[in-house]
Lab assay of single mutants.
Amino acid sequence: NQASVVANQLIPINTALALVMMRSEVVTPVGIPAEDIPRLVSMQVNRAVPLGTTLMPDMVKGYA
């Protein structure tokens, strides 16, 4: 199964993503693939992302 990017902490709106904020986990539904974690670093989220939430492409500015 494909691992997705999951929030490792609460990520406030407009926060630039850092490695420590993300982990990979096999979840349903599938979100952003875990292999894209390096690409996500320094991109901003466009909403608050609670701990344990799967990151979806529409949550990250400039990802989709």
Score class of each variant (00 low, 15 high):
1 N>D: 15
1 N>T: 14
2 Q>T: 11
2 Q>H: 12
2 Q>Y: 12
3 A>I: 08
3 A>K: 10
4 S>N: 01
4 S>K: 01
4 S>F: 03
4 S>Y: 03
4 S>E: 01
5 V>Y: 02
5 V>A: 09
5 V>R: 00
6 V>N: 01
6 V>R: 02
8 N>I: 07
8 N>D: 14
8 N>Q: 09
9 Q>D: 08
9 Q>P: 01
9 Q>C: 06
9 Q>G: 05
9 Q>I: 13
10 L>K: 10
10 L>W: 14
10 L>S: 14
10 L>D: 15
11 I>L: 08
11 I>E: 00
12 P>L: 09
12 P>Y: 06
12 P>E: 11
12 P>S: 07
12 P>W: 04
13 I>D: 10
13 I>P: 13
13 I>V: 13
13 I>C: 15
13 I>R: 15
14 N>S: 08
14 N>V: 03
14 N>T: 04
14 N>H: 14
14 N>L: 07
15 T>A: 11
15 T>C: 05
15 T>E: 07
15 T>N: 04
15 T>P: 01
16 A>E: 08
16 A>F: 14
16 A>D: 05
16 A>N: 13
17 L>A: 00
17 L>M: 06
17 L>F: 02
17 L>H: 00
17 L>C: 03
17 L>S: 00
17 L>I: 12
18 A>Y: 05
19 L>S: 10
19 L>D: 05
19 L>G: 05
20 V>G: 08
21 M>P: 00
21 M>F: 06
22 M>W: 02
22 M>R: 00
22 M>H: 00
22 M>K: 00
22 M>F: 07
23 R>N: 06
23 R>C: 06
25 E>F: 06
25 E>V: 09
26 V>Q: 10
26 V>L: 11
26 V>A: 09
27 V>Y: 03
27 V>A: 06
27 V>F: 03
27 V>Q: 04
28 T>A: 10
28 T>E: 15
29 P>S: 03
29 P>L: 04
29 P>D: 05
30 V>Q: 10
30 V>W: 11
30 V>R: 06
31 G>Q: 02
31 G>K: 02
31 G>H: 02
31 G>C: 03
31 G>Y: 02
33 P>A: 11
33 P>L: 09
34 A>E: 12
34 A>L: 03
35 E>V: 10
35 E>R: 06
35 E>H: 10
36 D>K: 09
36 D>E: 15
36 D>L: 14
36 D>M: 12
36 D>H: 12
36 D>W: 08
37 I>P: 00
37 I>V: 06
38 P>N: 11
38 P>V: 10
38 P>S: 12
39 R>I: 08
39 R>A: 08
39 R>T: 11
39 R>G: 06
39 R>C: 15
40 L>P: 01
40 L>Q: 01
40 L>T: 02
41 V>D: 02
41 V>K: 05
42 S>Q: 09
42 S>R: 09
42 S>P: 02
43 M>S: 06
43 M>D: 01
43 M>T: 04
43 M>N: 04
44 Q>I: 14
44 Q>W: 13
45 V>H: 01
45 V>G: 02
45 V>S: 05
46 N>P: 02
46 N>T: 14
46 N>S: 11
46 N>R: 12
47 R>F: 06
47 R>Q: 10
47 R>H: 08
47 R>M: 14
47 R>A: 08
48 A>N: 13
48 A>C: 07
48 A>L: 12
49 V>F: 03
49 V>H: 01
50 P>L: 11
50 P>M: 09
50 P>D: 07
50 P>T: 09
51 L>H: 12
51 L>K: 09
51 L>P: 15
51 L>C: 08
52 G>K: 04
52 G>N: 12
53 T>E: 08
53 T>A: 12
53 T>L: 15
53 T>Y: 14
53 T>Q: 14
54 T>V: 13
54 T>Y: 02
55 L>M: 10
55 L>S: 02
55 L>I: 15
55 L>T: 01
56 M>G: 04
56 M>H: 07
56 M>R: 06
56 M>W: 05
56 M>L: 13
57 P>V: 07
57 P>S: 08
57 P>G: 07
58 D>Y: 15
58 D>P: 07
59 M>A: 07
60 V>C: 03
60 V>H: 02
60 V>P: 01
61 K>Q: 12
61 K>H: 13
61 K>F: 11
61 K>V: 13
61 K>C: 13
61 K>W: 13
62 G>F: 09
62 G>C: 15
62 G>S: 11
62 G>N: 11
62 G>P: 04
63 Y>L: 05
64 A>E: 08
64 A>N: 12
